[in-house]
Design a protein around this nucleic acid. Structure first.
Lengths: 246, 246
DNA sequence: GACTTTTAAATGTCTGACAAATGAAAATTG
DNA sequence: CAATTTTCATTTGTCAGACATTTAAAAGTC
């Protein structure tokens, strides 16, 4: 554990890689304590600040946690689903915004994956998830709601639908696909008519889930996808026309 | 940009959060240069090592890159799909291994999501993806292949299937679901008969994709899921019997 | 025995310094 | 003047040493 050749990368990056590899391979297990910073500095033959930079890299990925005090130190962290969710959402959001991913592409991905868990959701939906979906539908139909709040509620509705599948791995994988759409949807202005149409489709979806009617849920999701993509096309076209017509 | 209240978190974490927020919100755009470490230390009223720890945290998430020299510094990084892939895979793999996710749960998630992109893949599949699938099938049918290599080839086959959908967002979202299964699959020993059955199903899937027959692809994937889950159950049951019988 | 104090170990932070890389400006040369 | 070389300032990478803070266990006290 002291390999620092003449690579062209940072020492702190090399050390972080070495420790990360040890965690992934299982040589370091959950809740195991790493050597102290001073000991690591000795082992890798670098200074303590360099070790600290490496540890901060790992902390940023929630791979370790640190604790001060006599029995403190750096411990291998059990990566929780919650931690993974937020990382997933951050990465997905940035990926979409930085690579100019089209609304259409992101939308297609989102609905393709959501439709995949609709059958499971229909089969296993709990009263809890149904209540959340109904509550969000109610919020969406209230007048005076800002577009942003409408989008946020839309995301919450779809999250409940996904979580209804009762499979935490699916919930995790779809967290990014569902939440990263929000910034893109925020670019759309929803007319009262649009909102009514979406609320109606959401209601139909919730009804289908409640009735455990998977094919109906799939059909309504497909229709919602079609409507959303058409809406985005219209809004973008109108915006383009306004710009060129100035 | 100088808010460091009496929180109970690290200063470096607070600074990293502030800069990350600026990137996500768009106040810092791609390729923009951050102030030098000395300037950041001044602005946040902390020392340079503390700023450096914050920057390393961001670098670990590929949010920034650093460059030495006269015109160097830290730059907002365009998060590439490739970077996002590997982060996604690392996180998914750790999430599954650290939380004792059952084979069944992970398998259900993987196939539910894969089946979601089968129709798109059938519609858009390129000769490239088909060739990859055929090549992996061929590899899988060669005798003398280790179980590990067989699993790796299996992952490559499924990756090609997913990539065939031609939607980079889908490919990104599913990278974790597909690749994180590999360590779990590596715990299974495949008999010659098992391998033959899997190869046969893979061939049927590739045929369906080539024929652009989405329903057939879906059916074969469902069958492959059923077979894989049954296989895992059998292997685990046999292992449990052997342990209790000792 | 219960409570308080001390102490040691560990991380968090700071100061100051030097090394190395790198591009641009300045000096040199044909 | 143009091309090349040299110098140089800027910035990150690394190090050494120090002090502050937190924490739990050990020692001491009633």
């Amino acid at each position: 554990m002291k390999i620092d050749p003449e690579k062209r990368t940072d020492l702190s990056a090399q050390i972080a890689d070495a420790i990360r590899e040890a965690i992934i391979s299982g040589r370091l297990i959950v809740d195991e304590r790493l050597p102290s910073e001073a000991e690591l500095a000795d082992q890798f033959d670098v200074s303590r600040p360099t070790v600290r930079e490496a540890l901060k890299r790992l902390a940023a990925q929630s791979l370790i946690r640190t604790q001060r005090g006599a029995t403190g130190g750096a411990f291998v962290n059990r990566l929780s689903f919650e931690d993974a969710y937020s990382q997933q959402i951050t990465t997905s959001t940035l990926l979409l915004s930085m690579n100019a991913v089209s609304f259409d592409t992101a939308c297609e991905a989102r609905y393709a994956l959501e439709r995949a868990c609709a059958p499971l959701s229909a089969q296993r939906r709990s009263p809890d998830h149904l209540a959340t979906m109904r509550a969000e539908i109610h919020r969406q139909s209230q007048p005076g709601l800002t577009d942003e709040a409408f989008c946020a509620s839309d995301v919450a509705f779809h999250r409940a639908l996904v979580d209804g599948a009762g499979n935490p791995v699916i919930s995790y994988q779809l967290a990014g696909a569902v939440e990263a759409m929000q910034p893109l949807m925020n670019m759309i202005t929803f007319t009262a008519r649009d909102r009514a149409a979406i609320v109606s489709l959401h209601t139909a979806i919730a009804d289908a889930i409640e009735a455990q009617d998977a094919p109906a849920a799939d059909a309504q999701l497909a229709e919602l996808e079609r409507y959303t993509r058409q809406l985005a096309r219209d809004v973008l076209a109108a915006r383009a026309a306004r710009v060129s017509g100035t």
